[in-house]
């Protein structure tokens, strides 16, 4: 299939997401040579991308159509594995857990990040702002595995969280937060929120620094209060950054693995099992590579289905 707009073969075009260069007139030999030279620069990256992203993706799709233990012979099952993913209540519950995590991984960090960014921006000159920024961003620097271990200590039955609760007279509600069916998933969510709030804050603050101060001035002259300033100037100006935050955090929620693996391993029962961990378990413990691949493909589609509308909304708003 040829792309009618340029007459070029669709495979021979810029990588996704790259901005198009302004069109040149056809026939200009030097321009054509320059274009090919450009491709030479892209080839190494494209090769790596093909080898380490596209090829595994293709293999995952292929595996998802088979019943296979990873070593021995495989049996073609068509869409049988997908039927299992959509009919097995346990697997559906696991996908449901990922969506519940969006609240903690995405909604909380973005809202909190927004609030913190506004406050820090107002006190940006003080040393406190720098300290707050550093402290909030620190979780991004710490490896998630270390964070998971530290949190599992904090939330254990004898951990700091329970010591604090006992000290303020709330000893009655202390428990092993990560080992209790009703609190394990929210506790995992708390760890995720702690990790991501710093990222959101820094992203949103960088967006706010780009806002022309005269806009605020104009708003103030028009008699806008703090809230009006926020909704009329700040929020519309950082729409793109919010979209990035939401995208990154929604992906972190749906594709979560490390925090859950370290803190609960999906337990107790299947209370904190998420698709990422289940794919790993299915493939490497249960040796059901086909079903694991099918769940992985479903997860990719789910992530895209959640993220693409966010991108579209942000773009529409910007225009």
């Amino acid at each position: 299939m040829l792309d009618l707009s340029t007459g070029r073969h669709p495979a021979a075009r810029e990588p996704a997401g790259a901005r198009r260069a302004p069109r040149r007139k056809p026939g200009a030999r030097r321009a054509a040579r320059a274009r090919w030279a450009g491709w030479l620069f892209v080839v190494p990256a494209l090769g790596m991308y093909g080898l380490f992203v596209l090829r595994p993706l293709a293999l995952t799709i292929q595996y998802s159509l088979y019943q296979w233990d990873g070593i021995g012979p495989s049996t073609w099952t068509g869409l049988g594995n997908y039927a299992t993913v959509f009919s097995d209540p346990a697997l559906l519950a696991i996908i449901g857990n990922a969506f519940k995590l969006i609240v903690a991984f995405s909604v909380v960090p973005v809202l909190l990040g927004l609030a913190v960014a506004v406050v820090i921006r107002r006190i940006s000159a003080s040393r406190l702002a720098l300290t707050a920024r550093t402290v909030l961003f620190l979780p991004q620097v710490i490896p998630l595995v270390a964070a998971g271990i530290a949190w599992s200590w904090l939330l254990s039955s004898t951990g700091v969280a329970n010591q604090f609760l006992s000290a303020i007279g709330l000893g009655g509600i202390t428990r092993a937060w990560l080992g209790d069916f009703s609190t394990a998933l929210p506790a995992v969510g708390l760890i995720g929120a702690w990790v991501l709030v710093g990222l959101c804050t820094v992203l949103l603050m960088s967006g706010m620094t780009k806002i022309d101060p005269s806009l605020y001035e104009a708003a103030r002259i028009d008699g806008a209060g703090l809230w009006r300033e926020f909704t009329a100037v700040t929020l519309p100006s950082i729409r793109q950054e919010i979209a990035v935050c939401v995208t990154v955090t929604v992906i972190a929620a749906l594709a979560s693995f490390d925090i859950v693996y370290i803190s609960t391993q999906g337990g107790p029962g299947e209370a904190t099992m998420v698709p990422g961990l289940e794919i790993y378990e299915l493939a490497f413990s249960h040796r059901q590579v086909g079903l694991a691949s099918a769940l992985a493909v479903v997860l990719i589609v789910l992530v895209l289905a959640c993220v693409l509308p966010i991108q579209r909304l942000a773009r529409k708003g910007a225009q």
Binding site: S5, L59, G72
Partner: peptide, 29 residues
């Protein structure tokens, strides 16, 4: 249109990568 063309290109690449026999190495078997 660009998105459609890209999708076709991706599918082509995927097809090329998977145009092989069923998984499961004959060596292991």
């Amino acid at each position: 249109r660009r998105g459609g063309a890209l999708a076709v290109a991706m599918l082509g690449l995927l097809a090329a990568a998977t145009a092989c026999s069923a998984p499961g190495s004959p060596q292991a078997q």
